Amino acid sequence: MPLSDFETLQLKRAGSIAQVQLNRPERYNALNRQMLRDLDAVCAILERAQDVRAVVISGNGKSFAAGADITELQKMTVDEIDRQWAGGCAVYERIQALPQAVIAAIHGYALGGGLLIALSADVLIAARDAKLGFPEIKLGFFPGNAGTVLIEHLAGPVVARAMCITGDPMDAERCLTLGLLHALYAPEALQDEAYALAVRLASYRPAAITLTKQVLSGCVRENYDASKRHERDLYRMLFESPDGKAGIDAFLARRTAKTQ
């Protein structure tokens, strides 16, 4: 698999390890439509790369990924928002379904859609200064792309409600205690530790990794799919309401949206 540069990320190869780096550092790696397209293209490459045994996803600059690019959301129609929801959800599920072991190496902020990229990995490790959260409620909406469904499955209803309703990010130590993270490291050691873990996982039998992932995914598909459809309907409904646009406009204007 050759080295590949995309508009919003980089894909590199080191032996049997693929390294995917989100690469919009000037926007704290905020997710836009191009990044979702690039991630989808990377998944297509990795799905065919039988000699790649493990994947590490990280972010360039000060953060892993600080949520959605709000400037794009402000300009979207409700139908475009709906398509964005479906497209983002498909990309995250494609990351989850990769045949390789996938590691997310998180530093700085992993928020909103950025956190969904991380949660789509099999093993999450982080720098001790990392912060994870779903701040969407502060903009007047809630996590989309099946984010509400995924976080409740992974963290349980109490933690999911706290994260989604308060919108406050959780520090890495708290996330480790809750089981969202596998391990914490000093910021300067994170990338080396991620690579070492990838090397270890790459030594396992590929079929064992792939089939284990399929078994674990199959345990939740029925309830997941029904809940995902419900979330999509409510997400569209919210963006059709006055509050949906008001929160985004307020955020971009650096002001607090007035409650009605």
Rank of each mutant, 00 (worst) to 15 (best):
K138D: 08
F134I: 01
S120W: 11
Q10F: 03
M170D: 01
A253H: 14
I70E: 06
E7R: 09
N145H: 10
R37I: 13
Q84S: 15
V199P: 08
P157S: 14
L150I: 13
E188K: 12
A189N: 13
R255A: 10
T177K: 14
L22C: 03
R13F: 15
N223S: 11
F239D: 02
A196R: 06
Y224R: 15
L184I: 08
E152R: 10
G156A: 05
Q19I: 08
A208N: 10
A186P: 14
L139D: 11
E136S: 15
R33S: 15
A86Q: 10
C219M: 14
Y224L: 09
I95R: 07
R53F: 02
D192E: 12
H107I: 00
P187Y: 06
L9Q: 02
N23V: 03
K62G: 08
E173R: 13
S16I: 08
V91R: 02
A202G: 15
K62A: 14
D40L: 12
L178P: 02
Q21I: 13
R200T: 12
H230L: 15
V42D: 05
R94Y: 04
T210D: 07
L115K: 06
D122M: 04
L9S: 00
I209W: 00
S120E: 07
K245C: 01
E26M: 06
I81Y: 09
L115A: 09
L211E: 12
R205C: 10
A121L: 03
K131F: 13
I103V: 09
I45F: 05
A18I: 03
M237C: 07
K258G: 08
V52W: 01
A250L: 05
V158D: 09
D243F: 05
M35K: 07
L180M: 15
A110V: 04
S58Y: 03
G144S: 11
V91L: 05
L234Y: 10
A121M: 04
D40F: 12
H153M: 13
L9W: 03
E7A: 14
T77Q: 04
L180V: 03
S63F: 08
N32W: 04
F239L: 13
H153A: 08
I45A: 01
V220G: 01
E7V: 11
A54G: 04
L197Q: 03
L234K: 14
R83T: 11
Y185L: 14
L119T: 00
